[in-house]
């Protein structure tokens, strides 16, 4: 866009972005692929028990003889669904609450802030476990809802602080003097200006949600079988970790690569999206 940006390409920024795109793209591609094609039927006993990786079974087989790579592929789909839905729920609730708090009267704002601080004092996983335990059946939907609610407190607190800082700016006063309604100010000035920081935080939350869902599944509170969540795969591999370490390593790599990928992607996107950072640094 500007001459400054054109003459100073940001090698580091673009590398971050491309690596993030690559990792996330890979998981998305795999997740989409599982909808139409899988190497094996995930429930079929296709080989010997706990065989090591081979050309037929890229990640070996589990203790019942099912193809392990197939299950990890399905895990990608579940992780993406969980991450996106949890962040969507948490983001929607959190941003709404945060913006309301930023605009609210002092008393209401203090009350909201205190409530959020108490909520945040509880570990995300603990809140999620409480919500899951309170519902009758463990399902993917319950887990996602629980994580979304747990994440919303963190998002709300961040939104509140960021929004308050933007509200101090003269352009907000200028917008108010020219007669912009408060909803107009929220959508035109506040949200766009807090979005760069917020979106990076969403990526962190996405990572947290994926890990938390894996933890819930590991504890048996997440998606019930036959949904092959990475957390459940890890839990199943626990007993055989010395004889067949691939059972723990493969889902671990899948989990970490997705979380890191999303964070790199968010970092890269932020640098592109913010004109004041373009070409700087």
């Amino acid at each position: 866009m500007s001459a400054v940006a054109a003459t100073a390409p940001r090698a580091r920024g673009s590398l971050t972005l491309w690596l993030g795109l690559l990792l996330v793209g890979l998981h998305i591609a795999v997740a989409l692929l599982t909808l139409v094609w899988l190497p094996y039927d995930p429930a079929a006993l296709t080989g010997g028990r706990l065989t090591p990786p081979s050309w037929e079974h890229w990640a070996g087989t589990d203790r019942l003889g099912r193809d392990f790579f197939t299950q990890i592929m399905i895990g990608s789909r579940i992780a993406l669904i969980v991450g996106i839905s949890a962040v969507a729920i948490g983001g929607l609730i959190g941003v709404t609450l945060g913006v309301l708090a930023a605009f609210a009267t002092r008393l209401l704002d203090d009350a909201l802030a205190a409530t959020l601080d108490i909520l945040i004092a509880f570990p995300t996983l603990l809140i999620a476990m409480l919500v899951v335990a309170a519902s009758d059946t463990a399902s993917l939907g319950t887990a996602v809802l629980a994580l979304g609610i747990a994440l919303s407190a963190i998002v709300a607190r961040l939104t509140r602080i960021l929004a308050k800082r933007v509200l101090l700016m003269d352009y907000i006063t200028a917008a108010r003097t020219s007669g912009t309604s408060w909803l107009g100010i929220v959508f035109q000035h506040v949200l766009p200006n807090i979005w760069p920081t917020l979106s990076v935080n969403f990526a962190l939350q996405f990572g947290l949600a994926v890990i938390a869902e894996a933890s819930l599944s590991y504890l048996g509170l997440g998606a019930p079988p036959p949904n092959a969540s990475w957390g459940r795969l890890l839990q199943e591999a626990q007993g055989t970790v010395y004889t067949a370490p691939i059972g723990a390593i493969a889902p671990g790599i899948a989990l970490v690569s997705l979380v890191i990928g999303v964070n790199l992607l968010a970092d890269g996107l932020r640098d592109i999206g913010d004109p004041t950072r373009r070409g700087s640094r």
Binding site: M169, D170, A174, A175, R176, T177, P192, D274
Partner: peptide, 28 residues
């Protein structure tokens, strides 16, 4: 506001939204 009175501020940087092009800010 906006029909009777309008403001010009001291600090020209914070008086403009950093994320909107000049045309958009004046257009609103």
């Amino acid at each position: 506001r906006g029909t009777v009175a309008a403001f010009v501020f001291q600090e020209p940087l914070t008086a403009l939204d950093p994320l909107l092009r000049v045309a958009q800010q004046v257009a609103e």
